[in-house]
């Protein structure tokens, strides 16, 4: 990074991009669904504050992730245009921004919404920034499995923000995202495999090979099927969610089977993998939308 590069103050858009806005949109959506699906009506101002804090916490954790991984990001085509590897920002600025956002999100959540959601939010930030980014991601091919827990917190926090306590339903919502994350990311890792290998991140396709990864994707998709239906089975939701979950999860299994039971050939366009990755995003949005629709239709 040259002095000339940093002579210009960092643009505010670069600070915004540190928060990974696209990932944040999924975090906000699942957090909001957790909040709206809870059997308690929350004051709109407090509800808005809870979602804002979830978003700020996710943004802070993402900034800390980029601060820690700046060198790795510089070696990957997908990430080398980010503010730190591109030399548009000092590393310390990213670290301080991440710490400030994270601390502010927990403090505001604690004061305005409640101590329990604030504690879970703090746990989720530490889980993502420390357990996943610093500890697991560079050490184990199971990084995505355990690290996926970080992304599973928002609906749990949203639900607890509304009700003030933890029950089976928000834990199931956590478990659904936890189980959804590995096939989602491994599908991506299959078609950006060379990038991860280049910087030495032990993603499953790099360490265990493509065939094992494909089997894992199918196994997790099969485990996700009953888990997605569990909220209906325990009586936490109605048939709207139940049938939606059944259809969406069945399609997820079919697409995962297309990936899990095939082998790629040289020059493969990896269409089934790209299709599964795209569908997995749609799946999560649709599943949680069905959850909220079910709650609001049944009252």
């Amino acid at each position: 990074m040259t002095a000339a590069t940093l002579a210009l103050p960092t643009d505010w858009r670069d600070f915004l991009s540190l928060t990974k806005p696209r990932v944040m949109s999924l975090v906000i959506f699942t957090g909001l669904c957790g909040l709206l699906a809870a059997p308690v009506r929350i004051n709109p101002v407090i509800g808005f504050t809870a979602i804002l804090c979830i978003a700020l916490g996710a943004g802070g954790a993402a900034a800390l992730n980029q601060w820690w991984e700046a060198d790795l990001d510089a070696g990957m085509k997908r990430t080398q245009a980010r503010p730190l590897p591109a030399g548009r920002m000092e590393r310390e600025s990213a670290r301080d921004f991440g710490v400030a956002l994270s601390a502010a999100s927990v403090i505001i959540m604690g004061l305005a919404v409640g101590v329990l959601p604030a504690a879970i939010l703090a746990l989720s930030i530490v889980y993502y920034a420390v357990v996943y980014t610093i500890w697991l991601k560079p050490r184990t091919p199971q990084n995505i499995v355990i690290g996926g827990g970080a992304g599973a917190f928002p609906p749990l926090i949203g639900w607890v923000a509304a009700t003030g306590h933890i029950t089976a339903m928000p834990v199931l919502l956590f478990a659904i995202i936890f189980m959804w994350t590995p096939p989602h990311f491994w599908a991506l890792a299959l078609f950006v495999q060379t990038d991860y290998a280049k910087v030495g991140i032990p993603m499953l396709p790099v360490v265990a090979g493509e065939t094992v990864t494909r089997r894992h994707i199918l196994v997790y998709a099969l485990l996700l099927f009953p888990l997605a239906l569990a909220p209906w089975w325990i009586g936490g939701t109605g048939a709207v969610y139940g049938w939606s979950a059944a259809l969406l999860s069945a399609a997820f299994v079919v697409l995962s089977a297309q990936v899990g039971l095939r082998r790629s050939v040289p020059g493969d366009a990896m269409k089934p993998e790209k299709r599964l990755f795209a569908y997995s995003i749609l799946y999560l949005f649709a599943l949680f939308a069905a959850l909220v629709a079910d709650r609001w239709m049944l009252g």
């Binding site: 210009l8 103050p9 505010w12 004051n43 101002v45 407090i46 808005f48 504050t49 804002l52 305005a112």
Partner: peptide
């Protein structure tokens, strides 16, 4: 760039002030 950052910071501070006021009223 500095001016744009100042405007962004002012907007964030203003929004937070309004939010804290609303939270106080609700509480």
């Amino acid at each position: 760039v500095q001016r744009q950052r100042n405007v962004a910071m002012a907007l964030v501070m203003g929004a937070l002030a309004i939010l804290f006021f609303a939270i106080t009223i609700v509480k």
